[in-house]
């Protein structure tokens, strides 16, 4: 049996699966109960599992992320919804000063089985501070894992894996893709590895590395490049910390030209890390400099300007061409 679902439906199904299979799993967040979450990711779950397992919290990100840490100590497995990307900032101290340090503070004995879900990114014509891409704040914070799915199947599989991980996982949901398309998913998700990237389009002339909503942009760029006679390999990074080193090195070695795309600001972004790893480890195999197509080092603009700020297929094509013509 399988069904066609959107990404946000896949998230909801994965949450339902975790609540069903793990009696210690508990969901916390703002408006996630009767309302089913502002994106409806948790629609119907409170009705199925009750208000003690799908818990509406006060507006208190530091409070309920901190409480989720305490719940882990007594044996619960909390999955927290942050309503919008920038709303996680008040909870940053709890994540950086506590969640990421807890296993280390117990000499490896006890981890926190904690998942923080963050709908993130631009392209939805949202108000200010509803379009940020803060993943690098977390990939630069020791002790956390950071992942971002790009389609309904990987969304379900990675969420199930995050819930079973045993360490805190920042699960970044590209909300622009929540209802973009439907895809076939199984009745029960299998846990997907949390340290593997996925080649989503084969190609040999240039590699485009992206995550979240930018995978779709990269795929669009690959189509255009194909029409121009260039074969682009698209790699969905999926795991942002740790990055999949083997796939990065193999891709760069085999293809030689690499473009990295993200909508987060450019400076100290993930693309900088990817470029640094590649030049440190496989510089001899690079046929051109690694190029970045990213958001700008400015607050994410108000939405009449967001299409200019977000990486587009045209910008990715242009960067890919630059590496091909280097």
């Amino acid at each position: 049996m399988s069904t066609q679902v959107t990404m946000v439906e896949a998230v909801g199904r994965a949450l339902g699966q975790v609540l069903e299979e793990d009696p210690r799993a508990i969901l916390l967040g703002e408006d996630i109960g009767v309302n089913g979450g502002v994106f409806r990711a948790t629609a119907g779950l409170q009705e199925r599992f009750g208000p003690d397992r799908v818990v509406d919290t006060p507006l208190s990100e530091a409070g309920f992320v901190g409480a989720a840490i305490g719940m882990c100590l007594v044996g619960l497995h909390p999955i927290v919804e942050i309503q919008f990307d920038a709303f996680v900032y008040p909870a940053f101290e709890q994540l950086a000063s506590h969640a990421g340090r807890f296993r280390w503070r117990t000499n490896g004995a006890y981890g926190l089985p904690l998942v923080i879900r963050i709908p993130y990114g631009g392209g939805t014509k949202a108000p200010e501070l509803h379009s940020d891409s803060p993943e690098t704040l977390f990939s630069h914070t020791p002790g956390l894992r950071v992942v971002a799915p790009s389609d309904p199947l990987s969304a379900g599989e990675m969420l199930v894996a995050a819930a079973a991980c045993g360490d805190p996982v920042i699960y970044m949901e590209p909300k622009r893709l929540y209802r973009r398309s439907r895809a076939e998913v199984p009745d029960r998700f299998q846990a997907l590895s949390l340290d593997r990237a996925q080649v989503v389009r084969p190609g040999a002339d240039v590699a485009i590395l992206a995550h979240g909503a930018m995978v779709e942009v990269a795929m669009g760029a690959a189509e255009q490049l194909a029409a121009q006679g260039a074969s682009a390999r698209v790699v969905d990074l999926r795991c942002l910390y740790p990055l999949d080193r083997d796939t990065l090195l193999r891709t760069a070695t085999e293809v030689g030209r690499v473009v990295v795309v993200h909508e987060a600001p450019r400076h100290s972004g993930l693309a900088a890390e990817v470029a640094a790893i590649l030049q440190e480890e496989v510089a001899d195999h690079l046929l051109a400099p690694v190029l970045r197509v990213t958001g700008m080092d400015m607050p994410f603009p108000l939405f009449q300007l967001e299409d200019q700020a977000l990486p587009s297929a045209a910008r990715v094509v242009s960067a890919a061409r630059a590496t091909l013509e280097y």
Binding site: I26, A68, G70, M71, P78, H98
Partner: peptide, 12 residues
């Protein structure tokens, strides 16, 4: 920052 942890442990 330890106050919310205690709340979570107690609540849990």
């Amino acid at each position: 920052t330890n106050y919310p942890h205690a709340v979570g442990a107690a609540w849990g």
